[in-house]
């Protein structure tokens, strides 16, 4: 049993968080402006880093945190990425090869489109307010957990896995509430920033790696 990736979407259909584990081939880097900042460092092109670092360091109040004061709680700027510990830094993705052949921002939209269509289809077919749980292909299985506030947790695992809804719920109840909802520095629902921060990422990573279905 393997876990491949985790996507979190907010109610505005935008991806606010991405994390992957046993993904041998990462998606191509997203084009600039294709996804929000602070979603995942592994898939963002860092072109903006060089020219905007001097500008934004004063323009954003959040950057007071990235000084040498100690713990970084919310990293919301792309140019503040050097502050993140090397453990969390994903290995550089091989350029040019990806399993889907898609850039990350396009992949994110496709995943959302599939999830939303299937969710509506299940609702329509059942005639009730019924949730879409998962679907399976020969290569992977996609699981969905949707919160009442419209956040969608999407996880890709290998096709033999049982339902992982409880894991997604655990991520929501545990790390998400603790390090995103209760973190005043994370600008939720802003349409401008993702929710990625060091604590949340470490916590999710630990939870997944510690679970019984992780090899």
């Amino acid at each position: 049993m393997t876990i491949y990736s985790l996507y979190i979407y907010d109610r505005h259909c935008t991806c606010v968080y991405y994390h992957d584990w046993h993904r041998t081939r990462r998606p191509k880097l997203a084009v600039e402006g294709g996804i929000l900042p602070a979603v995942s460092q592994a898939v963002v092109a860092l072109a903006a880093e060089t020219n905007s670092s001097t500008l934004t360091i004063y323009s954003s109040p959040r950057n007071t945190l990235t000084s040498a004061s100690g713990v970084v709680v919310a990293v919301n700027e792309m140019n503040a990425q050097s502050a993140v510990s090397p453990l969390l830094q994903a290995p550089p993705s091989p350029v040019g090869i990806s399993s889907t052949g898609l850039a990350f921002d396009e992949e994110v939209k496709l995943v959302y489109g599939v999830v939303l269509s299937l969710r509506n289809m299940i609702k329509k077919l059942s005639g009730r307010d019924e949730q879409f749980l998962n679907y399976r292909t020969s290569a992977y299985k996609l699981h969905l957990f949707e919160t009442l506030s419209g956040y969608k947790f999407v996880m890709l695992s290998d096709p033999g896995t049982e339902s992982l809804r409880f894991v997604l719920r655990q991520i929501y109840v545990g790390p998400f509430l603790e390090y995103v909802v209760r973190n005043p520095l994370v600008n939720m629902d802003s349409k401008e920033y993702g929710i990625d921060n060091e604590y949340f990422r470490t916590s999710v990573d630990r939870m997944i790696r510690g679970s019984s279905f992780f090899p």
Partner: peptide
């Protein structure tokens, strides 16, 4: 949308 290299079928079971 397959996260691994190689061919994937389309959705086989939707729950």
């Amino acid at each position: 949308l397959s996260p691994i290299p190689g061919q994937s079928s389309g959705a086989q079971v939707i729950e």
